[in-house]
Amino acid sequence: MGHTAARLTTNDPPAAEEILRQGIAQAGGPVALACSFSVEDVAVIDLATRAGLPLGVFAIDTGRLPEETYIVAETVSQRYGLSIEWYFPQAEAVQQLERQKGLFSFRESLENRHQCCAVRKVEPLRRALSGLSGWVTGMRRAQSVTRNDILPIEVDRAHDGLLKINPLCDWSERQLWDYAREQRIPIHKLHRQGYPSIGCAPCTRAVKEGEDVRAGRWWWENPEHKECGLHR
């Protein structure tokens, strides 16, 4: 699509709202948030709503989400008057994977885990991004070693050069939760139970004191491997 990364017009870290505004303007077409209903993603929805920015919202139902994710999704939809566009993995691909490798193959090897994520997340994401000019994430650099070099606005070469907008990239954990409390945004129940990062139920656990925020995701793997393929 020929996008080039935006040059934000400030020497200081730009405000999240300004990143969103400039990213949407540069995309020049429809832009949507990939929403997992984490506190980060709901904060982005709240920011966009308050600023009156045109931002769609889509979510991927992997078939293994915790019940609490569906509960907060309904709350978010009602609070902000959103029509959330849900995407699902191809049924035949899921059936083939489970028949060939069982229900928990993702814990046997990194290759198997990547295959499961490819079926349940990556392929539905490609369909969700079709027709968009840009997409928005709630990623923050402070989350993990795999995210410490993300930019506010970047070109996503893995997804046909779409513009990728990361408005919260500079936010600390404290900034995030200060915003959540000040604006009283809906909070995923598992966040209150020690889950700072939430994905599929079998692949997510609460973190222990002193662990980083993504330690509970695929906890049997090394930190540098803890991405599912949505963000490369």
Score class of each variant (00 low, 15 high):
Thr146Gln: 12
Thr75Tyr: 01
Trp86Pro: 03
Thr146Ser: 14
Ala128Trp: 00
Leu103Val: 11
Val94Asn: 09
Pro66Cys: 12
Tyr87Gly: 02
Arg141Lys: 15
Phe106Gln: 04
Val76Pro: 00
Glu108Arg: 12
Glu108Gly: 02
Thr137Lys: 03
Ala91Pro: 14
Cys117His: 07
Thr146Pro: 09
Ser83Thr: 14
Arg141Phe: 11
Ser105Lys: 00
His114Leu: 13
Val76Met: 09
Pro89Met: 10
Tyr70Trp: 12
Ser109Thr: 12
Glu123Thr: 13
Leu110Trp: 06
Arg147Pro: 06
Val76Arg: 00
Val94Pro: 06
Asn112His: 12
Gln143Val: 07
Leu110Cys: 02
Ser144Gln: 09
Arg120Lys: 15
Leu97Phe: 08
Gln95Phe: 09
Gln78Tyr: 01
Val76Phe: 01
Ile71Trp: 04
Ala73Asn: 06
Leu110Glu: 10
Arg107Pro: 01
Arg120Ser: 08
Ser109Phe: 06
Phe106Asp: 08
Val119Gln: 06
Thr69Tyr: 03
Arg126Lys: 15
Arg120Met: 10
Pro89Glu: 06
Leu82Ala: 02
Arg126Asn: 08
Leu132Ala: 01
Ala91Phe: 04
Ala128Cys: 10
Val136Trp: 01
Thr69Ile: 06
Gly138Arg: 02
Glu85Asp: 14
Tyr80Ile: 06
Arg126Ser: 09
Gln100Tyr: 03
Ser77Tyr: 03
Ala118Ile: 00
Leu132Gly: 05
Ala91Gly: 00
Ile71Ser: 11
Arg120Pro: 07
Ser83His: 11
Glu92Ser: 15
Tyr87His: 15
Val119Tyr: 10
Lys121Glu: 08
Glu68Thr: 14
Gln90Gly: 02
Leu65Asn: 07
Gly134Ile: 05
Arg126Ala: 10
Phe106Thr: 03
Ser105Asn: 11
Arg141Gln: 14
Arg127Thr: 10
Ser130Lys: 14
Glu74Cys: 11
Val72Arg: 02
Arg99Phe: 04
Ser83Leu: 04
Arg147Thr: 09
Ser144Asp: 11
Ala142Met: 12
Glu67Lys: 14
Glu92Thr: 14
Pro124Tyr: 02
Leu82Val: 00
Gly138Phe: 00
Trp86His: 10
Leu125Pro: 03
